[in-house]
Design a protein around this nucleic acid. Sequence first.
DNA 1: CACATAAGCTTATGCGCATAAGCAATTCTC
DNA 2: GAGAATTGCTTATGCGCATAAGCTTATGTG
Lengths: 157, 157
Amino acid sequence: MDFAQADALNQAIRLLSLRHRARAAALIAPLGLHPGQEALLLELDRTGPRIQAQLSEALGVEPPSVTLMARKLEASGHIRRSPAPSDRRASIVELTDSGRELAERVKEVWRGLAEETVAGLPAAAAAEIPGLLAAMTANVAPRRTGPGRARAADSGG
Amino acid sequence: MDFAQADALNQAIRLLSLRHRARAAALIAPLGLHPGQEALLLELDRTGPRIQAQLSEALGVEPPSVTLMARKLEASGHIRRSPAPSDRRASIVELTDSGRELAERVKEVWRGLAEETVAGLPAAAAAEIPGLLAAMTANVAPRRTGPGRARAADSGG
DNA sequence: CACATAAGCTTATGCGCATAAGCAATTCTC
DNA sequence: GAGAATTGCTTATGCGCATAAGCTTATGTG
């Protein structure tokens, strides 16, 4: 691969990231949400109550980010946090009634965003895209040694 | 498109954004760069001197972001800023010798990142990806009325 | 030419996400 | 069962990017 191709790919990813995020932000702003929060709500809606470590894994963000996201969503009444009975370190996060309603709203705009994103593309191409993106994501994702926590493998910085 | 498909797409874009950016950050950190700065250097390397408004457009970020990025790259000696003779509001940004050397380094890691990103994908798929991403980006990009500056079309907030 | 509008840039401020560091609770190992 | 290592969460802090607001210079309009 020559530099022009490499640059086209990296730049395309960067631009799509910025634009898609900005568009998502614009769409969920009327719901009182900032980007990132919709992902937490949707994850809870998909899977039910989760502890923060699971949310961190599912959302692809670090634990401190989950702490802050959860705190804000709790403050606005969309989620509830309670200590886990089986593990007193852990915090169970679940949707409130308000959060469930909000999640439904988010799902509507989420559908609209996806359709807007692939508008004009051949259906076959659109169907392949999530898989392609996931494959690329896996390629650049930090390596996990196994069931354990991710470790910094390089000692040299 | 049902919600599951829409969600798969949006989530895939979000995750790729996070991971690709994180990987890029890890790769350019040894060069003393933070993510975003490499884009500015590469743009100058591609096109030669630009004023900040052009960089804002090319990089897909807002003018205040360019101001800060440029200030930091100037402080580290990689770019030079000088007033444009034809328009005293504008600031011409160009690479220094140090910046040109650094851009070459960036191009190397940029190639490596792209190859890592599409590793394992069929060559045909990899070749299509930049175009697909660009099409999606165009779909979610803010509408421009024409040659003029983008305007906020909604008065209602 | 005077004035209003637009364009280029900057400062101030806020949010998301990151890493570093630290505490509390759990689990592993002997 | 005691100490060590791991896990879950939090606080502190920093960077990128955004919007809001303001300054300076250019440009359009009478």
